[in-house]
């Protein structure tokens, strides 16, 4: 009786260990995690978006994986930025815009574009980095601390720690630690963009949205930002809109190709760039249009 129990326990432990190993290998391969829904961060169902009467997005369906970098590519005007700005409800700032469909944010499964959901609560969970660096004309410190302050954190020590952490995580700390009181506009363009990233990650966002973050920067600054984005996927789910296909190929795990407001193809980046299933995708990435 006791022996049976012992064998049973042993089997269970072994089974558990094996499962754990499998889980590990999973992560090491960096493949798309299969657990549902915990490993999907955003599930977009039939998303359409209208600027007044103009339909800018048409029935988008996509599942964005957690802790991965998803790139959105496509020609100008295809709706990539429009899609990105649905995720943090930026469109709500302007009247006459309308959504239909669902964007489910996991783990809690709320529908981001539900009218009942306060966009402020979404924006606190989904940070955004814009095309042109747009730091506030305040001190470097104030820029990073701003998000924390509006979250209600007042304790000086917590703020200091968090600001330092965010600046280190955005590879800016060494360059600015002696001049945190200086105006953010005394920084170079690339530094300003990293400051904007620091400002966004200080809020511990679950999703970080990049809207062509390097299009206004020189190649050196661009490569620094790209390294940074690669690091960031340890902390957060990254979605990046980019004009630059090489950039998408270099940094992303998944790539979505959009064309005229529709999602044409979404797959692992290698697949999209080596063996796309859709003729349109192939034409775009080989430079036949766009």
């Amino acid at each position: 009786m006791v022996r049976n129990l012992a064998i049973k326990t042993l089997n269970m432990v072994q089974k558990k260990l094996k499962e754990d190993q499998e889980d590990d290998s999973f992560n090491r391969k960096d493949s798309m995690p299969k657990k549902e829904p915990g490993d999907i961060k955003l599930e977009v169902e039939d998303l359409s978006f209208f600027y007044g009467n103009v339909q800018a997005l048409k029935n988008i369906n996509i599942k964005i994986p957690s802790y991965q970098i998803t790139a959105i590519i496509g020609a100008s005007g295809c709706g990539k930025t429009t899609f990105l700005r649905c995720i943090n409800r930026m469109h709500d700032l302007y009247s006459k815009n309308g959504y239909s469909g669902k964007i489910i944010l996991y783990p809690d499964g709320i529908n981001i574009i539900d009218k009942k959901v306060d966009p402020i609560s979404i924006r606190m969970r989904a940070g955004m980095v814009f095309q042109k660096p747009n730091p506030f004309p305040k001190s470097i410190y104030e820029n990073v601390a701003y998000g924390l302050k509006i979250k209600g954190i007042k304790d000086k020590k917590t703020l200091d720690e968090k600001v330092e952490w965010a600046l280190r995580a955005s590879a800016l700390w060494e360059e600015v630690k002696d001049r945190l009181k200086e105006n953010a506009y005394s920084l170079s363009g690339g530094q300003q963009q990293r400051l904007c990233i620091a400002r966004a990650i200080a809020m511990d966002p679950e999703v970080l949205l990049f809207d062509e973050p390097t299009s206004a920067l020189d190649p050196v600054s661009t490569s620094k930002i790209e390294e940074l984005i690669l690091e960031l996927k340890q902390h957060t789910t990254v979605i990046i809109v980019t004009h630059n296909m090489q950039q998408a190929a270099r940094i992303s795990d998944y790539t979505a190709f959009m064309h005229l407001g529709e999602l044409v193809e979404f797959d692992r980046t290698e697949k999209i760039f080596t063996n796309p299933s859709n003729k349109l995708t192939e034409d775009y990435i080989t430079g036949r249009f766009g």
Partner: peptide, 14 residues
């Protein structure tokens, strides 16, 4: 610039 307002709103400012 509008981009400054968007920066503030994107961080969850009212």
């Amino acid at each position: 610039p509008q981009s400054i307002r968007e920066a503030a709103y994107s961080m969850g400012a009212t």
